[in-house]
Amino acid sequence: MSEARLQRVKDQDRRLIEIIVDGWAMSAMEGDTVLVAILAQRQLLRDAPGEPVGAGFCLMGACQDCWVWQEDGRRIRACSTYAEPGMRIRTTWPDHLLAS
């Protein structure tokens, strides 16, 4: 599962930033969308009970197949949100959703 899905082929000489995905530090490039940041190192964007696994589909904000979570519970559409240094992302439901 640690294999990359996307291949970086152009414009790779960018500043590195770090984001946290499911508690793991992950390096990304400045200007990456969250989708690209994650899928340049992993296979899946979303692996959440009750949801089909997903890695996005349209990359243009139409299919809504790339929503992920931030640790504070906020939802973001990974294909249309840029990764910010220190961003904390989850690929599954927040632990305490509707149970806190």
């Binding site: 009970p49 009750g50 949801e51 929503w67 439901w93 959703l97 509707l98 149970a99």
Partner: peptide, 8 residues
């Protein structure tokens, strides 16, 4: 809303 784990 989008579907959530069934709690309510």
């Amino acid at each position: 809303t989008e579907p959530l784990p069934y709690r309510i």
